[in-house]
Amino acid sequence: MADPKQQVYPLAPATMPRSDQESATNYRSEQAMKKKKRMKCLAYIAAFAVLQTIVIVVFSVVFLRFKTPKVRMEQVTITNIGNGNIVSFSARVTVKNTNYGRYKFDSSLATITSGNGVVLGQLAIPEERAGARSTKRILVVGDLASPTGDSNGNLAVTIAANLRGKVEILRIIKRKKSADMLCTMTINLPTNSVQDLACK
């Protein structure tokens, strides 16, 4: 039987101090894990940078590509007044804006000339704005003074106008754009009809 006065000491842990080889292996493993984490982080940063570049390029190509609006004339109406000395002229001017920003243009005048270059009258186009990717329709009226047609009463006319304005994107980016209108038509004075209306 053991002596109760005898002191009992706990056993020493069974672990043995690691050798230099084990320490080196663990150090290399830790370094490899850190390197792997750094590479993964760099890969994420590179992917984000590529994505940002693609977004910027697409935005620049699609949204920041400024196009010249198209100005045309349609629905022309002729009324012969004043015993044929004056012809009342009304039409609808369309401003087609294909940009991703609104097109704001200043007031302008459309000049009506006959086939031999004589100015017959002018049409006032008021200051307006065409929304992004939309068409603005404007009613214009005027008078043609002393129009003279050929033997059949046909009068060939040309209507020209220039709109000066700016395309605005996000109300920050602005670009000046001038839009030209050149329309030709034949007016039959006896019947007050319009034929062969063409714009470019």
Rank of each mutant, 00 (worst) to 15 (best):
G153K: 08
I159E: 02
Y27V: 01
A124P: 05
S151A: 14
E30Y: 01
V141I: 03
F63H: 06
D3I: 06
A124D: 10
S178W: 12
K5D: 13
V55A: 15
V141S: 05
N188D: 15
A91R: 08
T68S: 06
R65D: 13
V194Y: 02
I125H: 05
I169C: 06
E168S: 14
V118E: 12
N85T: 07
M39S: 14
F63A: 07
Q52D: 13
K166Q: 15
E30G: 02
T79S: 14
E128A: 14
A160L: 09
Q7C: 10
V50E: 07
P4S: 11
K5T: 11
L64Y: 03
V58K: 10
T79H: 10
Y100W: 09
M16A: 13
A160E: 13
T111Q: 03
L42A: 15
E168W: 14
R28Y: 04
A43G: 07
K67I: 00
K70H: 01
Q122P: 01
A130H: 04
K177R: 14
S60R: 11
K67M: 06
F48D: 10
I86L: 09
N83T: 11
K40C: 08
L170A: 11
V119H: 01
A160T: 12
A14G: 13
N162S: 14
L155C: 12
I169M: 10
A91N: 15
A198N: 15
A156F: 02
A110R: 04
T53D: 14
L163F: 03
L123A: 07
L64V: 02
I173R: 07
T184L: 14
I56H: 06
T184K: 14
R28M: 11
S29C: 07
K36V: 08
L170S: 08
I78A: 01
D196Q: 15
G165A: 12
R65F: 02
A46K: 04
K136Y: 01
D196I: 08
M1Y: 10
M73I: 09
I173G: 06
S108R: 05
G101W: 01
V61I: 03
K34M: 00
T25P: 00
Q122N: 12
N116R: 01
V119D: 09
E30R: 03
D180C: 05
V87C: 15
G84A: 09
P10F: 12
R171Y: 13
K174V: 11
L144V: 03
A161Q: 10
C199M: 11
L170M: 11
G149P: 04
V61L: 07
A24N: 07
N162T: 08
Y9K: 12
N192V: 00
T186R: 05
L139H: 08
S90K: 07
L11S: 13
N99D: 14
C199I: 00
